[in-house]
Computed example of a mutant assay.
Amino acid sequence: MSDALPAILIVLVTILCPPVGVFMISGCSADLIINICLTLLGYIPGHLHAFYLEYVYFDRREKGRLGQIGSDPAPGVYSDNIQTGGTRGYGTV
């Protein structure tokens, strides 16, 4: 349940304002700029882009926990944080 709480919070924030949801997972990156532009062009394209980024982020985060780290980058994603599912590195602490 504790892992689902951040995902639900990010989805709720994204419904209200897509760029804020993207900022929460990617930080200040090219993905954020693209999402701001798409949201200014229309509310629906901004939502589609934001939810795609969130899907990639949470999918890769879950695969990283299971040890199924893929090497293929997700198309249309420019943030390393999203590409790695927020893990940044694969070493041990």
Rank of each mutant, 00 (worst) to 15 (best):
A4Y: 14
P6Q: 12
L9I: 07
L9N: 10
I15V: 15
C17Q: 10
P19F: 06
P19W: 11
V20R: 01
S29E: 13
S29T: 14
L32K: 09
I34L: 15
C37Q: 12
L38A: 09
T39I: 04
L40T: 10
G42Q: 08
G42D: 02
Y43D: 03
P45D: 12
H47D: 02
H47G: 15
L48Q: 10
L48N: 07
H49Q: 14
A50G: 11
F51Q: 04
F51L: 15
Y52C: 06
E54T: 08
E54H: 14
Y55P: 01
Y55D: 01
Y57K: 00
F58I: 01
F58E: 03
D59L: 04
R61S: 03
E62K: 13
K63M: 12
K63R: 13
K63H: 07
G64M: 04
G64N: 09
G64T: 07
G64F: 04
R65M: 02
G67S: 11
Q68W: 15
I69K: 10
I69W: 13
G70V: 01
S71A: 13
S71K: 11
P75G: 04
P75Q: 09
G76A: 11
V77P: 06
S79V: 06
T84Q: 07
T84L: 06
G85F: 06
G89W: 07
Y90W: 12
Y90L: 08
G91M: 03
